[in-house]
């Protein structure tokens, strides 16, 4: 540097830093462009799908009847009515599924983090949770069909749907809870043991509350995922255009099932019901996703 300053016209040595050659710059530019393009390509279908759903479904759900009435007594081509029966079905099936999955999932996560350690059973459990994550929803539905309907002899019902959804929800709850329990500092556990508190009470009163916001967020996301599942409702519940409050008997509608049913209805009414149900389902799922974000913000452990 100093030689350059002394005599800028004459360089004693060629500059140490060469500018980046053209071919390297071109490669770099092409790579950057490709990477940006990949992202934009992925955004296209998302925007397109959402636009389709909103454009076709939004006018339908503005009608107050949509949220308060069922399709009871209406013919396929008769306009009017609503999706109350299907909304009820989707929410109740999801809720019952959550009531079963959440305790089971949390207990499995507690076992993996607090008790299992590196035993063979813990390894097998982790592996099986991974496998269960990948089980196609139709296989879960077939399994419940064989156990609940063929062997146990019950009929098709909303409860059977909830059972199949449990298979899909448990692994998600386990994964998120496990991650959350792992980041609870050991100092908290040790402080509790030092006070003579039994391990189970430490877990229930110290570890779980510390991780609660993360766990609840995970549960909401899992719930949003299972409520959009169609395969289990298709195999395990029959469609009813009217309201059925009975979880254990009779056909019960749900939004995905309503869509499957109305997709071959070529009338104007069918079109409205189809896309109305689609936007309602997307809205419910978005709501649960938002709820997850809110919970993680509000309940996050105080850092100060």
């Amino acid at each position: 540097m100093s030689t350059n300053l002394a005599d800028p016209a004459r360089l004693a040595t060629p500059p140490t830093f060469q500018s980046v050659s053209l071919s390297r710059r071109i490669k770099n530019g092409v790579a950057t462009a490709l990477v940006w393009t990949a992202f934009l390509i992925a955004v296209i279908p998302l925007v397109w799908v959402l636009y389709t759903v909103v454009q076709r479904g939004f006018p339908v759900i503005l009608d107050g009847d949509w949220w308060q009435k069922s399709l009871s007594g209406l013919l396929a081509r008769q306009q009017g009515g609503g999706a109350y029966h299907a909304i009820y079905g989707t929410l109740v099936q999801g809720l019952v599924c959550a009531l079963i999955s959440v305790p089971v999932g949390i207990m499995i996560a507690i076992y993996l983090v607090e008790y299992g350690g590196r035993t063979r059973l813990a390894k097998a459990t982790t592996f099986m949770v991974d496998i269960l994550t990948g089980v196609p929803s139709i296989v879960a539905a077939l399994f419940i069909y064989t156990v609940w309907i063929t062997y146990a002899g019950f009929g098709r019902s909303a409860f059977a749907v909830s059972l199949a959804l449990v298979l899909l929800m448990v692994p998600v709850v386990v994964r998120t809870t496990e991650e959350m329990l792992k980041i609870v500092p050991d100092e908290l556990r040790e402080a509790s043991y030092a006070l003579g508190i039994p391990k189970w009470k430490t877990i229930v009163k110290i570890v779980i509350p510390t991780a609660l916001s993360g766990i609840l967020t995970g549960i909401m996301l899992a719930l949003a995922r299972v409520m959009g599942e169609t395969a289990p409702v298709l195999v395990l519940a029959a469609y009813a255009p009217f309201i059925n409050y009975n979880l254990f008997d009779g056909p019960m509608a749900s939004l995905p099932l309503m869509m499957v049913n109305e997709r071959n209805n070529p009338t104007e009414a069918g079109f409205e019901r189809l896309w109305g149900a689609a936007i309602t389902l997307v809205l419910i799922i978005t709501l649960f996703n938002l709820l997850a974000t809110v919970i993680s913000r509000v309940l996050a452990p105080k850092t100060k």
């Binding site: 998302l46 397109w48 995922r225 599942e229 169609t230 995905p256 869509m259 389902l281 799922i285 978005t286």
Partner: peptide, 14 residues
């Protein structure tokens, strides 16, 4: 991640 939140039946209809 929003792409994953869209139910598969909606993708099918689209």
């Amino acid at each position: 991640d929003l792409l994953a939140a869209v139910p598969s039946i909606v993708f099918g209809l689209w």
